[in-house]
Amino acid sequence: MTTTQTQAAAQLPIENPGEAYKRRKTTRGNFELYSWVFMRASGVVLLVLIFVHLFVNLVAGEGITAIDFGFVAGKWASPFWQVIDLVMLWLAMLHGTNGMRTIVNDYAERDGLRMWLKIALYTAFVVVTVLGTLVIFTFDPCPADAPANLLPSFCTA
């Protein structure tokens, strides 16, 4: 038997040599359980909502050419569509934010980075959700001070 050996170039240092192990703290309560169930349930509901949304907005009637401020205003004149879009907004934002939170937990290794990423994530969630909710309920297709060329035809000055 012949045996040869060669030593290859040095590689990356080994990660975390000798780092002590301690589960930081235990949590009680069902938050993660509910969050897990929510992800599955909201995913199914969103699938329905999004396809309905796409169909109504892009396919039904005159299709994509019909979309303008007036079309949106027309929809949100009905409480039904307001609720539908509100539900879609909230579910999508919660689903997406929770998904991002999971990804941050899985991939951000340092606690500090994790914290900042989550602060950014939650801030974005609050801004988008609050703004979106406001828009759904306060949408005005004919704002008072807007230049006339941006307004739909049915707006009376």
Binding site: Q7, A8, Q11, P13, I14
Partner: peptide, 8 residues
């Protein structure tokens, strides 16, 4: 540092 070593 870790390193790679080859043996046949």
């Amino acid at each position: 540092e870790a390193y790679w070593q080859e043996f046949t």
